[in-house]
Design a protein around this nucleic acid. Structure first.
Length: 248
DNA sequence: TCTCACGTGTAG
DNA sequence: CTACACGTGAGA
């Protein structure tokens, strides 16, 4: 009908508003730059895994900073208002080094800040999804099979479906690409568009959400916004940004 | 009750 | 690893 731009036959396209983000429901007409992201989202997530880089759905437009090369040095951190002296570790899927995609995690690292983006906005009673895994693998637990079902019998709320963090790049994307496998196989796959798959949910529930190596800046370096990469448990590279400002 | 989407198993 | 399929939790 008169959905969004995406001419996908996917009855999804415009449905993003339905369950999408906390507080962002109003998907009136999406942000000017590109509808996939929410207005205030400055990062680009660079998920071009597939290569179909439909600019209109990838939403990488201005971000341009698609790569861990010191991308959001200023804007990203700046917009977060991270206090000086704080070591921030922003991670992003190596693919593009889009740190932003893990904004949520970044918040966790800095502590405190995160709340404002995620938890508070989520009306759901359950604890922030992003925090649970890192806190100690509460919900997800490690239980393998038994998926959902009454499996949780013993742990009661132990086996809860995790929910999108709502702050990562994919979560902020408003429309489905319509071309990824998930979109194409929606009928049977029951999966959300790959480009909208929450970064948090991509992680294994038991993987602690962000088990990454927290490294000190290279010896001799002052940790002034240096960027380098470390690989996480899944072999993905994460771009780490340290903005520690040593008090001289 | 329906739809969406997470979790998981299986196959290629 | 990706794609696919299905069960099922959760919300409308």
């Amino acid at each position: 009908m008169h959905q969004n731009a995406s001419g996908n036959s996917n009855s999804e396209s415009g449905r993003a508003d339905k369950n999408s983000l906390p507080g962002s429901q109003t998907h009136h007409h999406m942000a000017p730059s590109n509808g996939n992201f929410l207005p205030n989202y400055s990062g680009a997530d660079c998920l071009n895994k597939q290569g179909h880089t439909h600019s209109d759905m990838m939403g990488l437009s201005e971000g341009g900073g698609c790569n861990g090369g010191g991308v959001m040095g200023g804007s990203f951190l700046g917009s977060l208002g991270i206090p000086p002296g704080v070591i921030v570790m922003a991670m992003g899927s190596a693919a593009g080094g889009g740190i932003s995609s893990e904004a949520g995690s970044a918040f966790q690292m800095t502590g405190g800040q995160r709340a404002l983006t995620d938890c508070q906005q989520h009306t759901n009673p359950s604890p922030c999804p992003s925090s649970s895994p890192s806190s100690g693998a509460t919900a997800g637990g490690g239980s393998s099979s038994g998926a959902s079902g009454g499996g949780a019998s013993s742990g009661a709320a132990a086996k809860r479906k995790r929910k999108r963090c709502g702050v990562c790049g994919p979560c902020r994307r408003l429309i489905n690409c319509g071309v990824c496998s998930s979109c194409r196989n929606r009928k049977t796959g029951h999966q959300i568009c790959k480009f909208r798959k929450c970064e948090e949910l991509k992680k294994k529930p038991g993987s602690g959400g962000g088990t990454l190596e927290v490294r000190a800046p290279p010896a001799g370096h002052r940790a002034h916004c240096s960027l380098w990469r470390v690989s996480d448990t899944q072999g993905h590279f994460r771009t780490c940004l340290y903005t520690s400002r040593l008090q001289g």
